[in-house]
């Protein structure tokens, strides 16, 4: 079973607190929504789990493993492809992934690319926002790992692309893996979530089962999330 145990995580950058006292325990084969406003710390938390951000105090254990290098092999993190030159064709990006990640499954990538209708010959610069995100999702899911981190895969994407991406997640997420999807607009992914984790004021303020929120409070996920954000204005905002 996949587990992620985060204990007393604190992270500062340039004298600014990004995350404080984050403790979180995730387990099983779930899809978890990581919700919070822009700047709440969602991306930082993902980068810390993925091991691409370092020097935080506290511990993050994936399958009881806390070593940065072995942890990296357990996590597939959606990379915005910022390191590639704009004129790189998709085929070159795929070749790079194959070379760098031993767990990259070429056949699975092909299934995803076919399903999402990606044209291998196109250059990165020529891709629309939606197509670029489809490529990112295909590359991320084509790796065979225990944890998948998708950082705002739906921001600025048309509804048809969004539906296709959601379907590809449901089809190709390995049964035993944990997936964390961050978003600040909840309703588009609410039906596919097992649990939600809400980040506010640099820390985790709620971690709940999605259907429990509906059952206990008679609220939609979005209303519950917004309710938490409205509760008590912090001093920073005054």
């Amino acid at each position: 079973m996949t587990t992620i145990e985060i204990e007393k995580l604190n992270y500062r950058r340039n004298l600014k607190t990004i995350l404080k006292d984050v403790s979180l325990s995730l387990e099983g084969d779930k899809i978890i929504g990581l919700l919070g406003e822009n700047g709440a710390g969602k991306t930082t938390l993902m980068r810390l789990i993925a091991g691409t951000a370092k020097n935080a105090s506290g511990t993050i254990a994936i399958k009881d493993d806390t070593e940065a290098d072995t942890k990296k092999a357990l996590v597939s993190y959606s990379n915005p492809l910022g390191g590639f030159a704009p004129n790189t064709p998709i085929s070159k990006v795929v070749a790079f992934y194959e070379k760098v990640y031993p767990d990259f499954d070429q056949a699975k990538y092909q299934q995803l690319a076919d399903f999402l209708q990606l044209d291998e010959s196109l250059k990165l610069a020529a891709l629309s926002k939606g197509t670029r995100e489809k490529l990112v999702i295909s590359l991320t899911l084509a790796r065979q790992t225990s944890v998948y981190l998708l950082d705002e895969p739906f921001s600025g994407i048309d509804s048809m692309s969004r539906k296709k991406i959601i379907n590809s997640i449901l089809k190709w997420k390995p049964a035993e893996a944990i997936m964390i999807i961050s978003d600040h607009y909840v309703s588009e992914i609410a039906t596919i979530l097992d649990e939600v984790v809400i980040i506010k004021d640099q820390t985790v303020v709620a971690h709940k089962d999605a259907d429990e929120i509906r059952e206990e409070f008679g609220l939609g996920i979005e209303a519950y999330y917004e309710g938490l954000y409205e509760e008590g204005v912090t001093h920073d905002e005054i």
Binding site: L170, T191, L193, D194
Partner: peptide, 17 residues
């Protein structure tokens, strides 16, 4: 189960429940 999940656009675990 997975096919039902995809056609309803819901989580596999929710279908299972």
């Amino acid at each position: 189960v997975r096919q039902l999940a995809v056609s309803l656009t819901v989580n596999v675990n929710t279908v299972q429940r």
